[in-house]
Design a protein around this nucleic acid. Sequence first.
DNA 1: GTCCGGATAG
DNA 2: CTATCCGGAC
Length: 302
Amino acid sequence: MRGAGEEKRRAGIPPRVIAWFAENARDLPWRRPGFSAWGTLVSEIMLQQTPVARVIPRLEQWLARWPSSDALAADSPAEAVRAWDRLGYPRRALALHAAAVAISERHGGRVPDDVDALLALPGIGDYTARAVAAFAYGQPVPVVDVNTRRVLARAVAGQGEAGPARTRVDLTAMQELLPSDPAEARAFNAGAMELGQTVCVARTPRCEACPIAELCAWRAAGYPEYEGPSAPRQARFEGSDRQVRGLIMRELRLSDTPVPADVIEGLWPDSVQRERALAGLLADGLANGSPEAGYSLPGSVS
DNA sequence: GTCCGGATAG
DNA sequence: CTATCCGGAC
């Protein structure tokens, strides 16, 4: 059972985060007034597994070339993957192109404002669907990324880490704090993420700069060591299949004609790992071809 | 070397 | 629920 003091403490969190965000929000492209829903969708997909600083230049190039979903849908998946360049996880580029096609075909070229319609698009999951609904359309739906999860784990649950993601639990926790007013809900969604990115960071949180330090359950408990299950650790990149995939993709992006099999062979000495990576790219639809014909990006003209 | 970041297939 | 999927900054 929750005490009255506990309720009061929790109720203080959103207004303080909102006030802090009003003063401390970074000036980012997707926060510009009039930024399009399409731009929001593109930026959120780019931000899925890529830090802000690396996204910004690529986003601006992307939107200059494809200012609408119709524009992207009219171009080839190969060009989308090429323009993605080295942002990483190129399946996102393929999914974004497929989402643009779906938006054109099913939604008349307008990015949908409904969470379920957004979730039905390729490459859009729980985070991105709610981020677009909240930030592009002002809907008061909870948006939870890894930073928000850490803020809630500390301030509300009194734990030092968030542990493995539990989507339903996380969304419920955010929903319970979310103001009903759409403008406040938007600011709290964005502010909680920003707080987690810039102040309530994983390793060395700057509690002296935190607007909710006096309300934080973790701080009140004396910063207890986290006991629960940890989020899984990312495997090494060097020598990984991901590195080999990246090398092959780089070769395909740079070539206007099919890349011969012997060129692929020269990219990585371990044939078992190389073939596994290539098979994975073919299965993902990021590459087309055969040992005889060579390999190309999907939907290439050549 | 370590850190950062959500979607999806099985 | 778990494994897979990138690459640049520090």
